[in-house]
C-alpha cells in the first residue's frame, strides 16, 4: 500500500495540470437529458477545439451556479427568472436558441377526464376539482415555474392545495416522471425529456398544443466582470455558434424516434 502512495499523488498532480480550452455550460436538464447537447456540441468542438463541459441542472440551480461565477454560459427556459437574473446584473443578454412545448402527461385511466384537450389551465382546474394525484417538480426549475404559471392562469394557488393529491417531489424532470409513473399521477413535462424518457409506464400525453404550453430555451451571456476572463471568448464563440445557421441547423436535425425535439428559435 505504501509504495502506491507516490503514484496516486503524482497522478493527482498531473490531473490538475494545463487544461485545454474549455467552457462550463450551465444547462437546464431537458436539453442535456434529451440528448440534444451530446448531439450538437461535438460539432462545435470539432470546429473550434473548445471543449464544452455541461452541468445539467434545473433552471433555478443553473442560474444560481452562474451567479456564483461558476459557469461561463447559461442555457435555460424560464423567462421570468431570466429577467430577474439580468436585472441583478449577472447576465448581459438573453437570446432565444430553440423552442418546443410542454405536455401534460397522466395515467391511461385519466381519473380527471382531461385527455385530448388543448387548454392546459382548463385541464389543471379539472385535476384540482377531481383531486387527482399531481406530481409537481417543486424545484424552481423552468418547468416548475411554468407549472405554477398554469395554476395561476386557472386562478388557483398551489400553495393552498391540501389533501395530499398535489405532491411536490423537489426533484428533476426524470424524478418527477418516475414518480408520476409509479403513483399514476399527472405531471407537466417538457416534450424533449418526455420523448426520450425510458420509464413511461402507463403515462401518456393528455394535453398538448395551445399557446400556454410554449417552451423557449434561451442562451444567456454573463457579466464579464463576474466570470472567468479566460473563458469569456470561448463562451461567446459557443453562444454565437448555437445561434448561427450551422448551430441552428444541427438543433433542427436532432430527432428521437423520428420526432424532432427542438425547433430552431434564433432570430435570423
Amino acid at each position: 500500500m505504501r509504495n502506491w502512495l507516490p503514484v496516486f499523488c503524482g497522478t493527482l498532480a498531473l490531473g490538475a495540470a494545463a487544461p485545454p480550452p474549455s467552457v462550463v455550460l450551465a444547462s437546464t436538464t431537458s436539453v442535456e437529458n434529451s440528448g440534444l447537447l451530446a448531439h450538437i456540441l461535438p460539432v462545435f468542438t470539432r470546429e473550434t477545439g473548445i471543449e464544452v463541459r455541461v452541468l445539467s441542472l434545473g433552471t433555478g440551480q443553473a442560474l444560481a451556479v452562474a451567479a456564483h461565477g461558476d459557469a461561463d454560459l447559461v442555457l435555460v427556459h424560464d423567462p421570468d427568472a431570466e429577467r430577474a437574473f439580468i436585472a441583478a446584473g449577472h447576465g448581459v443578454s438573453t437570446r432565444e436558441m430553440a423552442w418546443n412545448d410542454f405536455v401534460v402527461v397522466g395515467p391511461a385511466d385519466d381519473p380527471a377526464h382531461v385527455a385530448g384537450g388543448h387548454d392546459a389551465p382548463v385541464a389543471f382546474a379539472a385535476i384540482r376539482k377531481a383531486e387527482a394525484p399531481f406530481v409537481s417538480r417543486g424545484d424552481k426549475s423552468g418547468t416548475d415555474a411554468q407549472e405554477k404559471r398554469l395554476w395561476r392562469a386557472a386562478s388557483l394557488d398551489p400553495a393552498s392545495f391540501k389533501g395530499g393529491w398535489y405532491r411536490e417531489i423537489g426533484g428533476g424532470m426524470g424524478a418527477a416522471l418516475n414518480a408520476a409513473a409509479a403513483m399514476g399521477a399527472y405531471t407537466l413535462a417538457d416534450r424533449g425529456t418526455w420523448l426520450s424518457f425510458g420509464n413511461k409506464g402507463s403515462l401518456r400525453i393528455v394535453i398538448e398544443g395551445g399557446g400556454a404550453l410554449i417552451n423557449r430555451y434561451d442562451v444567456i451571456t454573463l457579466n464579464p466582470n463576474e466570470h472567468r476572463a479566460e473563458a469569456r471568448e470561448a463562451a461567446e464563440r459557443l453562444a454565437d455558434w448555437l445561434l448561427s445557421p450551422d448551430g441552428q441547423a444541427a438543433i433542427g436535425r436532432y430527432q428521437v424516434g423520428g420526432e424532432q425535439l427542438f425547433h430552431p428559435g434564433a432570430a435570423p
Binding site: 436538464t29 437529458n33 445539467s56 426533484g171 428533476g172 424532470m173 426524470g174 424524478a175 416522471l177 418516475n178 409513473a181 426520450s196 424518457f197 425510458g198 420509464n199 413511461k200
Partner: peptide, 11 residues
C-alpha cells in the same frame, strides 16, 4: 443517478 433520472432503470 443520471440514468435513473432519465428513466433507464434497467441500465
Amino acid at each position: 443517478a443520471l440514468e435513473t433520472s432519465e428513466g433507464n432503470l434497467g441500465f
